[in-house]
Amino acid sequence: MIDLIGYIFIGIGITFDFIGCLGLVRLPDLYNRLHASIKCVTFGTCGIMLGVFVIHGFTDVGIKAIFCALFLLLTAPVSAHAISRAAHLSGVKPWEKSVCDHYEKDK
């Protein structure tokens, strides 16, 4: 029973991983790609780690899985932020159908 719950968590996580990679290929410019993919892939991998925790319980593997998910939640947004800022400063233009770009104006 507890294994089944863990498998369901892992399945949800892998589905979101796949959707995030699909977004990486499908969306039109760098910012949108970063947007969709970093969110979905972080959530999916945290789901997988939660599944590992549910299956193994409070043993060394489970605690390590929880720490891995926590670390991922703290660092993935920071790396996304660093990449987007560097890309904007190095001159990657947003998609031509973008509505507004206040960052370009204020720089």
């Binding site: 410019d29 979905c40 159908k97 507004c100």
Partner: peptide, 12 residues
């Protein structure tokens, strides 16, 4: 992502 018409309207 999955919608065929890509309903996005991006901007900063």
């Amino acid at each position: 992502i999955l919608h065929p018409g890509l309903p996005i309207k991006p901007g900063i």
